[in-house]
Nucleic acid binder design. Sequence first.
DNA 1: CAGGATCCATGTAGATACTG
DNA 2: CAGTATCTACATGGATCCTG
Lengths: 133, 133
Amino acid sequence: MDTSKLPANVFDPNCPSRVILQRIGDKWASLVIQVLGDGPVRFSELRKMVNVVTPKVLTQTLRTLERDGLITRTIHAQVPPRVDYELTEMGASLLEPLRMLREWAESHVPAILEARDAYDEEQDKAVLGPAGG
Amino acid sequence: MDTSKLPANVFDPNCPSRVILQRIGDKWASLVIQVLGDGPVRFSELRKMVNVVTPKVLTQTLRTLERDGLITRTIHAQVPPRVDYELTEMGASLLEPLRMLREWAESHVPAILEARDAYDEEQDKAVLGPAGG
DNA sequence: CAGGATCCATGTAGATACTG
DNA sequence: CAGTATCTACATGGATCCTG
């Protein structure tokens, strides 16, 4: 495949654009981004919104996002401590494609569930044999 | 959480729409879908396009996609054997959101790389200490 | 409040060898 | 050609405990 004309190409295993797609599939990253879409949120608020994530994992997620320039981390030197996370411009620009994907996902849930059901039934029949039903 | 009014919600850990997002981030799934965007492709062709995937992993990916109703698997009873994979209508409908995401990813690669560089430099400085530079 | 450190469970990818 | 079976390696997520 000739990819010399392209600045980036997901089909190239060495291309960083690959990791971006995987960032979207990250269990928490895309959720965090969407939560931050409404404005800055502090750590504890973030935890409440995604509900069941441990601080370690949330921190990991946030650091990765920060490193990639998608969010900023602002420390308020106060008592009690307060740290706000906010989308950067680049992070905000991801909101739209992400929203489309989320809408696709949410709207196709029933169809996918049906497909799975049908598939699993076929598999069961096959395992039981043609005379098993 | 009361989600009775919603058909689906990515913020609910129990909602299947979550796994869809992760399917997008799957190392091979989204690539396969995009390859199949041009029409049916057989197993060996698929392997060549994504190049480095082992048959086991590719099969796994394809089965999952098939189970979710995103692709179909057609066996041609011939010698040599031939199996074609093809997008379903639903699978094809994922092409658009996926393409947008891919474009976002590919176009933002430089900015992200820069952000990482900057971030890593800051970290190094912090580790060395204020008098270390 | 906002994490860091440590240990553990799991899932997913890959290597390798074999089959219809 | 198109897979399946088995084993291994590593990344990711989570539980628990501790700190500025």
